[in-house]
Design a protein around this nucleic acid. Structure first.
Lengths: 318, 318
DNA sequence: CGGCCGTTTGAGCCACATCAACCGGGGTGG
DNA sequence: CCACCCCGGTTGATGTGGCTCAAACGGCCG
């Protein structure tokens, strides 16, 4: 399934034929565009193959960029640092130290499992690109999504102290993440108090978001819950730099939305229609557009301050 | 209202007449017992006065013990240290340093506000004794309790990095808490990495509990939710040393239970009756007894491992 | 073409909310 | 000392938001 994210050697033979290794990211992207071009005039199996090839080429290009940038300061962790330093300063020296011990970035496909429930935690995992979700499965098979992650979030800052993952985390989109082994982290913590603070901060931010979800789950009904979640994801994507305006990729299916909001998939559907009908949002094919932001905020009783994006919010205090 | 908790000088004149200052905690407790004795043979206003006096005497005795012990290592923070060190070691030197900068302990009455929503956070607050709850109030006046604290918990480890309290925290029982000013904490964090880790750990533990609540709110129905909450409180009280067996003071009203579990007070009542009827628990006059622990655990799908009490749980690994 | 997954729509039902009334205890005022 | 009230708990009647079951539709993939 997800073998080609591991390393260049693991790529499907189809790609190898193009001698991907010797090409620059820009070239790869150009090739991908070509493939798509060709695909548009084809049908059936050939079209599918071309599109798949284009997708893989794009993916490889993205990987190349990450790998290339790895030699410079801390490109991969940029999102993480941006988030942390929007609230507290992390000196360049700290950043470099954190990066030194990181393992090679991992590329995961959509749906791929990043962390398995019950598995022992051996490293801190930071999501550098894409989105992910943490899900808890009950005995009867029902599920509850307890967290959604965007670029810059740590996936397991809240599990790490317990040395065990309490729920499974899988990718909602193609994702890139970086692992920092516990051994390395331990030595870092003693020498770099700012890093310990950053982890504390991250866990605290996670907790703030969870409290907001609890309020929704406990006291709001479907419309407000859904609206609030959309507002939150929108803001977090903007804060992390993954999205610039109020239209963005929204990779959750209605079933997953239901598992997030404590609703059944059918009711999510009906509730979405309500929001659409009120002209608040548009959503189709994983693409979400907020049509009436203030209306949506009001319906959700949404106040983005809890996301701590002080740098972005109106009030620039602190 | 809550003036007499501040200092000895702030006590009501009634108590001053007894020259409380010169008496030992044991004497004070004896006096309190005498008052109660006398009260039992009285009625009306006199009885009430005597009981109130007894209560204040007991309270003062308790305060005395805390104040007296303050000179020794870290008695007040014992619960906090116990919790932290059940998972990681905190050297005595760290403990002493943490204590050095603490302000005098604050004694709060039942119901008293410890932290106010929106207020700026100026210190880390640790609950040394008693219970407390964090509540979020919605625009329409409905409330959701987003956290319950027992002795040893930090009240605002998850708000501190944001410099602002996101919800109000008030005492569920008479409580004692200790504040460590941010100024002091900041210097500590650079010199004592273990303290930074402890804070991280505490925020992570908080997050683990919240995830559990989210699963309950989203996917369990009333009985399981209620049962789970009871199991959790029971375990946390035991881990913190506040309770030894499966019978303990349970200070939440049914309204508060509803605000915790996302239910209406009436439904909480009916659900309690169900649990009582199945012989799982007893509850009256703020006193809760677990009659059938395994049955309750099963109904709640409760697995105490998420509370991280590795020292107490069956599996003593790590 | 057929199967699968996500979405959509309809019909009936249930868990829980809401409204309302009553009870018991402790505190308060006359 | 009593009347009153407020609050927390209890119980019943009725309404409803959201679940469940079921079926149809469309896009994507084999």
């Amino acid at each position: 399934m997800g073998a080609f994210g591991e390393s260049v050697a693991g790529l499907p033979s189809m790609l190898r034929k193009l001698s991907v290794q010797n090409r620059s990211p820009a070239e790869l992207r150009r090739l991908a565009a070509e493939r798509r071009e060709q695909a548009s005039s084809q049908t059936g199996k050939i079209k599918r193959l071309l599109l798949e090839e284009a997708r893989l080429l794009d993916f490889q290009a993205e990987s190349r960029i990450w790998i290339a940038e790895r030699r410079s300061v801390s490109y991969e962790l940029a999102a993480f640092f941006a988030k942390v330093s929007s609230r507290m300063e992390l000196a360049p020296a700290d950043e470099r130290s954190l990066l030194t011990g990181a393992m090679p970035p991992r590329h995961a496909q959509k749906g791929e499992l990043l962390i398995e429930q019950e598995e022992e935690t051996s490293s801190l995992v930071i999501l550098c690109s894409g989105m992910a979700r943490a899900v808890r499965t009950l005995l009867d098979g029902r599920q509850q999504i307890v967290a959604v992650f965007v670029a810059g979030d740590t996936l397991n800052a809240t599990d790490l102290p317990f040395r065990q993952a309490r729920n499974s985390i899988s990718a909602l989109t193609p994702a890139i993440c970086l692992s920092i082994p516990l051994r390395h982290l331990d030595t870092l913590l003693t020498g770099h108090p700012a890093i310990a603070r950053a982890l504390w901060l991250d866990a605290a931010a996670q907790s703030a978001i969870q409290q907001e979800w609890m309020v929704g789950l406990g006291r709001h009904q479907a419309q407000a819950r859904l609206a609030h979640f959309i507002c939150e994801v929108s803001c977090r994507l903007q804060f992390s730099g993954s999205s610039a305006d109020d239209s963005f990729e929204f990779p959750l299916t209605q079933r997953e939305l239901g598992d997030t909001l404590g609703l059944s998939p059918v009711h999510v559907n009906r509730t979405l229609q309500l929001l659409r009908g009120q002209g608040l949002i548009e959503l189709s094919h994983q693409k979400l557009t907020i049509r009436n932001k203030s209306g949506l905020y009001e319906l959700a009783e949404f106040d983005p301050r809890y996301l701590g994006g002080s740098r972005f919010a109106d009030r620039g205090a602190t």
